[in-house]
Simulated scan of single mutants.
Amino acid sequence: MEKQFGKRFEGKVAIITASTQGIGFSIAERLGLEGASVVVSSRKQKNVDEAVEQLKARGIEVLGVVCHVSNGLQRKNLIDETIQKYGKIDVIVSNAAANPSADPILEIKESVLDKLWEINVKSSILIVQDAAPHLQKGSSVIFISSAGAYQPQASMAMYGVTKTALLGLTKALATEMAPDTRVNCIAPGFVPTNFADYITKNDAVRKAIMEKTLLNRLGTTEDMAAATAFLASSDASYITGETLVVAGGIPSRL
């Protein structure tokens, strides 16, 4: 039987970046099923069209826009189209990320460093800058970080460090955007998605990761969506500047 959700986002407008598959798509779906008008985006028109179709089939009000988050014109267009259609923004979920390298930090190319910084950190800041004038009182910004922010893994060291930056960004923006906008962060553990398939497709690696968790399983995109929906909703109206680790009990502290 299909799960029934409350309608915590009735009348709300939510933008989710990188939301045509994986965690981003599940977040868009969850917010939509809870009544939000959702704006989904990613780099390819085909992916955007497919995601819009899937969400419409679930009865969700949805707008799809092509947006490469590091492209200033496309970012501005994402906000403009949202405002044109819905007139306001209540929730922003910044989910776009790149991990183009498995090199150690001391060997990583400068161009790769630039790309990691550009997409994982800088774009997260710029999308909030672009959206800020349209955010309503009681609005919510959510950054999607990673449990790797607390202990960057050797194979994804610089990626982990960019995710650590988001923890600091959450604190800084929560101060700056209070009291009208709350800013929080989700740090997912390992979730089998296209983005992480090179880790989770390998059975030995998958088993090793599962054994690191206390719950003896990998996370699901729905786990991440549920946590995001909570933090974005009025149920979390007294929570800001916090990171919620959703990682099955993998140790996480800075």
Rank of each mutant, 00 (worst) to 15 (best):
M1T: 10
E2Y: 12
K7I: 11
R8C: 00
F9R: 05
I15D: 08
I15M: 04
I16S: 00
Q21V: 10
G24V: 07
F25Y: 12
A28V: 03
E29I: 07
R30A: 10
G32R: 05
V38A: 06
V40E: 02
R43E: 03
Q45R: 09
N47T: 12
N47C: 10
V48G: 06
Q54W: 10
Q54M: 11
L55C: 09
A57D: 11
G59R: 04
L63I: 07
L63M: 07
V69M: 11
N71S: 12
N71F: 12
G72Q: 02
L73T: 13
L73I: 05
Q74E: 13
R75W: 13
R75K: 09
I79L: 04
D80V: 10
D80S: 12
G87C: 07
I89W: 02
I89K: 01
I89A: 04
V91K: 13
I92K: 05
N95S: 08
A96L: 08
P100N: 15
S101W: 03
S101Q: 00
P104M: 08
E107P: 00
E107N: 07
I108H: 00
I108W: 01
E110C: 06
V112D: 02
L113V: 15
L113Y: 11
N120Q: 04
S123L: 00
Q129H: 03
D130R: 01
A131T: 05
H134V: 11
Q136L: 07
S139Q: 05
F143K: 05
I144K: 03
S145E: 01
Y150S: 12
Q151E: 10
P152K: 11
Q153D: 04
A157S: 15
L166G: 07
L167D: 02
A172W: 07
L173H: 06
T175C: 13
E176P: 08
A178F: 15
P179I: 09
D180T: 13
T181L: 09
T181S: 13
C185Q: 15
P188D: 04
P188R: 02
P192A: 09
N194E: 15
F195Q: 09
A196Q: 15
D197H: 07
N202R: 12
N202F: 12
D203Y: 07
I209P: 00
I209T: 01
N216H: 06
G219P: 07
T220D: 08
M224P: 09
A227W: 00
A227T: 04
F230M: 04
L231E: 07
S233P: 14
S234I: 08
A236C: 08
S237G: 02
G241T: 03
V246W: 05
G248D: 10
G249F: 07
